[in-house]
């Protein structure tokens, strides 16, 4: 299965590149999907511990705003990526120190509340953040090169793809490591973990900071792709979408977040094109169907199909 997972990941990466070459607009959508997929890997880590964050979009938002604020001073994509990620990671550490004491509903609601505070701040301090109008990100350099828009978009797409593969591999190793195993133990029997001398809070905190970091990477990529950031990036429905993508893709594999993110973006686009004023209903229906009939998500469906083939 793991070998298949790797092959499928490879095939998907190649397919994405081909699709991006054939359709320029898809390249944009796929970059966004890759970025969101990276953020959703973070959600997935927390889900392993049985914790649902309904406020994780805030790290995307914080990183995107860091990029927007810094871009005029440091117009270099790679520096902006690191800066945005750093801001999100540090915020993740601060918030994580607080929320890692809580579990389940309180964990979810505290994340939601904190994200709403930050969302309100982004919206409220109009003189600094330009409120709901948002801030435009001018085209930065990429690794020192001043690229044309189209080439820059390719560069960001390639960067997103590389980072996505990197984070997927990292997550796979992480989940298989003792730290990852301890994470699953938080979900099942946390107290036992502590009897064994493993500090559950630190395990959760480290996963939380990692997830914030991945949110930061996603935020920086999104900011440099859409090149316009608004507070909506951090709104609670955006956080809900991340959890949506995690379940849609399936939590069983690190490919799940990417499967989910691409499907989510495409469904939203085609639902919007087909019935512009009822796309939410279609997305909601898809989500409902997945939960009720395929709780393992897309990855679970693929797995099921393979098993049926393997055992005729």
């Amino acid at each position: 299965m793991r070998r298949f997972e790797t092959l499928l990941g490879l095939a998907a990466a190649v397919l994405m590149v081909v699709a991006a070459i054939l359709a320029p607009w898809l390249k944009f959508v796929l970059t966004i999907a890759l970025a969101k997929g990276i953020a959703v890997i973070g959600i997935m880590l927390l889900l392993r511990a049985g914790q649902v964050s309904f406020g994780h979009a805030v790290f995307i938002g914080l990183s995107a705003y860091a990029v927007a604020f810094l871009a005029p001073a440091v117009p270099e994509a790679l520096v902006l990526l690191i800066a945005g990620t750093a801001v999100a990671t540090v915020s993740g550490l601060l918030i994580g120190l607080f929320v890692s004491r809580y579990r389940e509903i309180f964990f979810g609601m505290l994340n939601l509340a904190l994200s709403m505070v930050i969302y309100s701040v982004l919206e409220k301090f109009y003189s600094i953040t330009k409120g709901t109008d948002g801030i435009r990100v001018e085209l930065p350099r990429f690794a020192g090169m001043a690229l044309e828009r189209a080439d820059f978009e390719w560069a960001i797409f390639a960067l997103a793809l590389v980072l996505a593969i990197g984070f997927a591999l990292f997550a796979r190793l992480y989940l298989a490591s003792p730290m990852g195993q301890a994470l699953s133990a938080i979900k099942t029997r946390e107290t036992r973990l502590e009897f064994m001398g493993v500090p559950a809070r630190q395990v959760l905190l480290s996963a939380y900071v990692l997830s914030a970091l991945m949110g930061g990477v996603a935020g920086a990529l999104i900011a440099m792709t859409t090149r316009h950031v608004t507070p909506l990036l951090a709104y609670w429905t955006a956080s809900g979408e991340l959890v949506f993508i995690a379940i849609l893709g399936g939590a069983g594999s690190v490919l799940g977040p990417f499967l989910g993110a691409v499907t989510f973006e495409l469904v939203r686009i085609y639902a919007g094109a087909a019935v512009a004023d009822a796309w939410q209903m279609i997305l909601g229906g898809v989500l409902l169907a997945v939960i009720l009939f395929a709780p393992g998500g897309l990855w679970g469906m693929i797995q099921g199909a393979l098993r049926r083939r393997a055992a005729p």
Binding site: L47, G50, V52, F54, E104, I105, G108, G240, V243, F244, A246, I247, D277, A278, Q280, M281, L283, G284, G285, L287, L288, I291, L292, P295
Partner: peptide, 20 residues
């Protein structure tokens, strides 16, 4: 079922009811 699925079911309902 898992807490996250229960939460998301109501999120799905929320999306559907918004358009309804």
């Amino acid at each position: 079922q898992e807490e996250v699925l229960q939460l998301l079911v109501t999120f799905a309902l929320f999306m559907i009811l918004e358009d309804v």
